[in-house]
Amino acid sequence: MADIDIIGVAKTFGSYQALKTVDMHIADQEFMVLLGASGSGKTTLLRIIAGLEYANAGEVRIGGHRVDHLPPRSRGIAMVFQNYAVFPHMTVFENIAFGLRMQKILNTEVERRVKRAAGLLRIDQLLSRYSNQISGGQRQRVAVARALAVEPAVLLMDEPLSNLDALLRLEMRAELKGVLQESRTTTVYVTHDQVEAMSLADRIAVMHEGGIVQAASATEVYRDPATRFVGSFIGSPPMNFLPAERQAGGVAVVGRTFPAVAGQGALEFGIRPEDVVRAAEGLRGKVRVVEPLGPHQLVTLDIDGHLFRAVIENDHKIAPGETLVLAPRADRIRWFDRASGAAIH
């Protein structure tokens, strides 16, 4: 069993607080993605799980055993680094074999495991090459093969795809998902790319300024963001926000009335660009820019001085300067407390 428990972990670097009391449980065989912008603390958390950094407070458990005082080699983990860290003075074979050799595994077994890992990542024909003789994408595969070869309890990946060009990234993402699904290892994967996160994760932990804001499945994070931040971070184009005023018997949003929302305090109205349709009644705005994006049009409107984006089907051409009326899907409207940013249910 290789589940991971993060209990009350905090980390400061000098006067800078990188992680503020993080609690998280990752189930055995779960693929957890730590998603956030740079500075959110995601890499720090990963490195603390790995043992490359030590937390100032809290515990880390793997498979129920406390590991936070153990060096990386004793934690049953393997890691894929952002810049691959492929050893330049060894062949691809020796790179992949390295962890196995450190465990003093017999040569025949080493060879079997290396060939198997290389086969999974489709680099079997590169085994005798050195890292300066292969491309960046190939080096990345070597890094993954090297981690898988030791058959770790936990696999840690630090933005492994971010140094690849766009097309390669797309291909590798799919391949990686296939390979990792097969291996069924508990995986913690760090990225700033939300599409990557949505594509690969069982659960996504959205991180912001040293804390986990929401940890849930991709669908849940998308449909039911816990905070305004999550709503704006996930989804491209991002969620629209409009100021809302509580009134007797309802909530007013740019002149339209919506059913009352629980609680007190100022509100914000959130709706995703694809969750509105053209209608007779609804939010009224003036079209500023129309971007024909193939499968649909991305229309940027000015609704009462606020920027609003809508994704509209392609059938009817829309021109800048037009007035558009958009009705939001009632079940997709999200309300947020304007002060705290928390979602209101």
């Binding site: 080699r73 983990i77 680094f81 860290a85 050893f87 390295f98």
Partner: peptide
């Protein structure tokens, strides 16, 4: 990172 990788590999 090369040393860190080695640490994670035993």
């Amino acid at each position: 990172e090369l040393e860190e990788a080695a640490w994670t590999l035993g």
